[in-house]
Amino acid sequence: MEATAKEIQKKETEVKEGAERTRAKRLYTPPVDIIEGEDRLLLIADMPGVDENSVDITLEKNILTINGTVEPEIPENHRLVSYEYGIGDYHRTFTLSDEIDREKIEATVKNGVLRLTLPKAEAAKTRKIPVKAE
């Protein structure tokens, strides 16, 4: 492993004052990779326990919000004797600096990983300005 397990531990979201949740459930901040290409942003988030029906993505102005709801699967007639990770929902927000083409946002969830493709709007695509030599 490139990182130690301690760095990979799930991180609980710090609740900001005045924004407490109504559900008494743990809330985690999913780790993400964000890749920027010329015409898109690709956001990949680890959200184990979530599928395509339990993740909710909104883009309001330039605030991207990701929410994931997890229904813990508890083995019947078993007793928890040891735990190294907690289970709860996911929440994270990002401020996007680029103009995004909302109509073409695509999201998939597979094996607990969310992949979100955010195509840049025409105006935001990098334009190369040729510099002419005199």
Binding site: M1, A5, K6, Q9, H78, V81, S82, E84, Y85
Partner: peptide, 17 residues
């Protein structure tokens, strides 16, 4: 438990019957 250290990835939970 003889395991249960947080030094190893991945983290596990254990349920017994």
């Amino acid at each position: 438990l003889s395991s249960g250290s947080l030094s190893e990835f991945p983290s596990v939970n254990m349920w017994v019957s």
